[in-house]
Structure formats: structure tokens, C-alpha cells
Design a protein around this nucleic acid. Structure first.
Length: 573
DNA sequence: GCCGTTTTCGGCCCGACTGTTTTCAGTCG
């Protein structure tokens, strides 16, 4: 999707952060935040819009439209540059620490001169926060914990950001004359939830033009290494990208080798040795003669070892080699298997686009059905009412009649309260085509209470799907503490599906949890949780996560034909 | 800063939770 949108959204968000750190009008900062979100989620390339067209985007007025246009004209936003000179970038970095907001960040900066996460960490160790107003022992503990969380994600970048970078690089190098093949490999190809660095492979006879083209990419902020067949760079966003150029004949072996994981490759090499073979990034060789056996495609490499081709997300040495040898490797669900999306939002609550736009975009994806599931009243900030829900239902029914190829379902995303209760009485819930129910607060309840509330939600006869079941937020918050095995059992018993949520900061359930839940015979829903048409493709991350969890299409309710899905929705809960 | 209007100012999703505080500020969703 349009990269300029994300670029300008990042800058406007930065401006909002800097405004909030310096205090003043909080509503002004919020206006910039809202505009950043609107620009980032806009369906068209905002760099091609003039001021008048920009102002048509909800949340973007005269002032912000002018800044956006100026940025794409000159490459600068003077107001932002001016703020940057007054506040070190490290201060903004501080507010990425959970529980540390703009006010505390500014206090740390003004009173102690702290301007980076590292400096804060050192100040904590040195006891320099003692006596600082508003910073008690509990706050110190929270800050330490927050820094740990931040550093765990530390150095690793979210899947969507890595993919965007990789696709840009692959597109650029594919256009270089002499390119036979080009693809990304590594943990990104395996769809790990966060990515350390991006690995890109090129197959070509002559590597030199690719080394040059790579190090001269516009996204390259720093060239880390520049060799004959291998180069590395760092992008302006701090993503390290490694490029390897291979002879076209070694493509399959190279792709296999650089996709990993390391543990999976060790497993393969062990099998190779047993066959009197030797496996490297250049091919599969006879151990005695050193003669090349195969190397052109991954399929050949796996086949010569007596294995079917193993989908990259499953290559984690979690039993996939043994399963493949036994002919018992599940055939994982693919994006093409999905017939619909069952968790999406509109601007009636916290989405960015009108119902009609979301439905049009969903239809363009070729879905057979599509559910609109805006938030319910218990999430107070969303201002939902029964009247609004019913009015939306009328619009959904009208759209459903208009879209011949795609059925539009009217659902809702209920809030699971601390005791497992959800919004609205039973008779009102019965009017929805489907109900997703998710946790949005009370993350600190103890294990017994979390388990109880999830099971109660699953037992609710109107609840069809538990949305983002652990509510983890990558790099910010671990999942809730619950006896998930008991929850899976309850979902299997009540016929309630568990969601695999495709938002890159969620990916919830995660791969390991999916595998555990599968054992109970649970059904799943693989959803985007889209808040704008731009998010609809996020199902690819949910599918990648599902593949890592060995999920088959049969187990995913939104691969089913509508008739079967409806039957499931009638009996679920 | 944006928006909508009973048009040009006054409101802006509202409430819970936490920790530090003796009555509330900050953060979060």
C-alpha cells in the first residue's frame, strides 16, 4: 500500500507526540494524532493530493493539509523541525515505554536531563529518581519492567514494517537487468511475529550490478557492508537489510538455507548425512565425490531427502521434519482458502472508513461473505448505542441486497467484562448474525479470574468467536495470565471459535497457542480486525501465524461455505 | 487543530485504574 501515507502519518504522529510532551492544548495534540491515523489509513496515495483534496479526509483541516502538502513539495515540515530542535528525539523515545507518558517523560527530561531510554535505565540504577515528584517506588518498578518489555521486542521490528521494506527492495532489485530470481527469505519468509533483519536473495550470473543498485537504494541511510556477493545496509527507519547474490543454479539450495530456521536446517543436514549427502547454501552434494546432486529448486532439495516441500512458516524444528517423513505434515490453510473476514470495524466506532467503503473493498478481495463487527456500548469510549447498531443493521441489509457476489453479515465485537459478562441483553444479541467477544481491559486480574471470564464468555450462547484471546500487544504488554488449556476445552465444548487476529502488533492467538488449542479440537477464525480498507490485507499475517500453528483450512470457519458457516454460527456459544 | 453549526466559537469518546497523593495527575483503552 502507498508508502507516502505511512511516511506522513509517522511525521504527523511525531509532531503530536512532541506537542503532548511540551504540554499546552491536549486537544490540539489529539487532533494531530487523529489526522495521522486518518492519513496512514487513507485508501489513496496522499502524496498525490492537493490541499483541497487533503482537506476532504476527515480529521485533516486547513493547517494539517498545508503541512502535508508542504512536506511532499519540499521534504520538510518547518513546524516539526522547529519542535525537534527543542526536544531531543530520545525524549520522544521515552514515551514508548509502557506506563510512561508525555508528562512523566518531560519531567524526567527537565528535572534530570534524561533524554534516552538508556539514560533512564542508568538513572534508575543510580537511584537518581528518588525524591522526584510523582515518581514513587512503584513507578520505578513499572519503568524498569517497561524498559525490559521494550528491549525484549528490542532491536526487532514488526512484521508489517519488515515486509514493506522487503517488498520495496525486492521490487527495486527485480528491475535490475540480469535478475533471474529475487525474493526475501529469513524469519520474514517464515512469518515470525517480529523480525531481526531482512534477508533478500538474488539469483544472477553477475553480482556486481546488484551490489551497486542495492547500496544506492533511496531507502539506504547507511551502508554497513559492501562486498562482492553480500552487502548490508540500514534504512532510515533502522531496519537492517542483507543482500546475497547466488548463481541461478543454486537458487533452491540458497533460498532453503537462508530461510532457516537454523534448527530446521540442522535437522535437514542430519538427514542428508544419513543419505551420504552434504547440504549447504550452494546445493545438495554427494559426500564422497563432492558432485552436485540438486540445487535449483527447494522442492528438489526436500524431495532428494525423502521429504515433501515444507511451507516456510512450519520450518521451526517443532516436529515438522518427523511429521513430513511420516507423511503426516498437515496441509496448512492459505490466504486463497479464506472466503471471508469475520472481524472488522467502520467509522461508526473506531474504524476510519464508512461501512460502504469497507464493504466495497472487501468485495474487491473476492470474499463470499464479510462481517461488520463494530464495538458495543461497554467500551465507553466508542459511544455505541442500540439505536446506532440497529440503524447500521439497516444499512448492512441494504448493502447485502446490492452486493450480489458477497453476503454482508451484521455482527458486533462485544467487550468481555471482568466477570465474563458482555454488552447488551440476550434478546438484543440474538439479532446479530454473529458476535465476536474480546477482552479490552482488566489485564491484571489473577489467573483464576481471567480463566473464569474467558470461559464464561465462551459459554455465552450468543458468542461465536473469542477475539484476540490473550490481548497481548507485542513489545508493550504480555498476554493475560489464564489457564488457556481450560479455555480451549471450554471453546471446544461450546463450539466457540478462537480468533487468529492479523493486526501486526497482536497476532493473537500466537503460533504456539494455536498448536495447543488444536489439540482440543477447537475451531478458529482467521481475521484482519481491519479498521480501514488498508488493513484488510492483514489477514496475510493471520494466515502466516495460522500456518506457524499448523492450522488446516478445515479448522478455520471462515474458509467454509456460507451455509456451513451459518450453521456453525447458529450452534456456536 | 478540527468540526459543525440553532455558523465562527465551544466542544472535543468517557471512564477505570494506578500510584502517589491527602484530593488528584497520569496513563490507557
Amino acid at each position: 500500500m502507498a508508502r507516502p501515507n505511512e511516511e506522513i502519518a509517522g511525521l504527523i504522529q511525531e509532531y503530536a507526540d512532541l506537542l503532548s510532551v511540551t504540554g499546552g492544548d491536549a486537544f490540539k495534540a489529539r487532533a494531530y494524532e487523529k489526522a495521522a491515523r486518518a492519513l496512514g489509513g487513507h485508501h489513496a496515495d496522499v502524496s498525490r493530493l492537493d490541499v483541497r483534496q487533503l482537506r476532504e479526509i476527515p480529521g485533516v483541516g486547513a493547517s494539517i493539509a498545508e503541512k502535508v502538502a508542504e512536506y511532499f513539495r519540499t521534504g520538510h515540515i518547518p513546524a516539526l523541525d522547529e519542535r525537534r530542535t527543542r526536544i531531543p528525539s530520545g525524549v520522544r523515545e521515552l514515551i514508548r515505554i509502557p506506563t510512561l507518558g508525555p508528562k512523566k517523560a518531560m519531567a524526567l527530561h527537565e528535572d534530570l536531563g534524561i533524554a534516552s531510554v538508556d539514560q533512564l535505565s542508568a538513572a534508575l540504577d543510580a537511584g537518581r529518581l528518588h525524591g522526584l515528584k510523582g515518581f514513587g517506588p512503584k513507578t520505578e518498578e513499572n519503568l524498569r519492567h517497561g524498559i525490559t518489555l521494550l528491549r525484549q521486542a528490542g532491536g526487532r521490528i514488526p512484521l508489517d514494517q519488515a515486509l514493506q521494506t522487503a517488498e520495496d527492495v525486492v521490487a527495486a532489485l527485480s528491475a535490475v537487468p540480469g535478475c533471474v530470481r529475487c525474493a526475501y527469505a529469513g524469519s520474514l519468509r517464515r512469518m515470525r511475529e517480529t523480525i531481526g533483519d531482512v534477508d533478500v536473495l538474488v539469483a544472477a550470473e553477475d553480482s556486481a550490478p546488484f551490489m551497486t543498485a542495492f547500496t544506492e537504494l533511496p531507502c539506504a541511510a547507511e551502508v554497513i557492508a559492501h562486498g562482492g556477493t553480500k552487502s548490508s545496509l540500514r534504512t532510515a527507519e533502522g531496519v537492517q537489510v542483507d543482500l546475497r547474490v547466488l548463481p541461478p543454479a543454486a537458487w533452491g539450495a540458497g533460498l532453503q538455507y537462508f530461510t532457516g530456521s537454523k534448527a530446521h536446517n540442522i535437522g535437514l543436514r542430519t538427514i542428508a548425512v544419513r543419505h551420504g549427502l552434504k547440504l549447504s547454501e550452494y546445493g545438495l552434494f554427494d559426500a564422497d565425490s563432492g558432485e552436485l546432486v540438486v540445487s535449483e529448486t527447494e522442492e528438489e532439495v526436500y524431495a532428494r531427502l525423502g521429504l515433501p516441500w515444507i511451507p516456510p512458516p512450519m520450518r521451526e524444528d517443532r516436529g515438522e521434519i518427523a511429521a513430513a517423513l511420516a507423511g503426516e505434515l498437515p496441509d496448512p490453510v492459505t490466504e486463497a482458502d479464506l472466503r471471508g473476514d469475520l472481524h472488522t470495524h467502520t467509522d461508526l466506532t473506531d474504524g476510519l472508513a464508512p461501512l460502504e467503503d469497507m464493504v466495497t473493498a472487501a468485495a474487491a478481495r473476492g470474499y463470499a461473505y464479510y462481517a461488520v463487527t463494530d464495538h458495543a456500548p461497554d467500551l465507553y469510549m466508542q459511544q455505541m448505542t442500540a439505536e446506532k447498531a440497529l440503524a447500521q443493521r439497516e444499512r448492512v441489509r441494504a448493502l447485502d441486497r446490492r452486493h450480489r457476489g458477497m453476503r454482508v453479515l451484521h455482527g458486533t465485537e462485544l467487550n468481555i467484562g471482568p466477570d465474563g459478562e458482555v454488552d447488551w441483553p440476550d434478546d438484543f444479541l440474538a439479532g446479530f448474525d454473529l458476535c465476536v467477544a474480546s477482552i479490552h481491559s482488566h489485564f491484571q486480574l489473577d489467573r483464576a479470574a481471567q480463566t473464569r471470564r474467558l470461559i464464561r464468555a465462551a459459554e455465552n450462547p450468543h458468542v461465536d468467536i473469542i477475539g484476540h484471546p490473550t490481548t497481548r500487544h507485542l513489545g508493550r504488554r504480555p498476554g493475560i495470565d489464564a489457564d488457556l488449556e481450560a479455555v480451549y476445552a471450554a471453546c471446544a465444548r461450546t463450539g466457540t471459535a478462537l480468533e487468529v487476529n492479523g493486526q501486526p502488533e497482536r497476532l493473537d492467538l500466537c503460533d504456539e497457542d494455536i498448536r495447543a488449542a488444536r489439540g482440543h479440537g477447537v475451531r478458529f477464525a482467521v481475521d484482519s480486525d481491519a479498521h480501514t480498507p488498508v488493513h484488510l490485507p492483514y489477514v496475510r499475517y493471520a494466515v502466516g501465524t495460522a500456518q506457524r500453528g499448523w492450522l488446516t483450512a478445515d479448522e478455520v470457519v471462515n474458509t467454509w461455505p456460507l451455509r456451513k458457516l451459518k450453521s456453525f454460527l447458529r450452534t456456536a456459544g
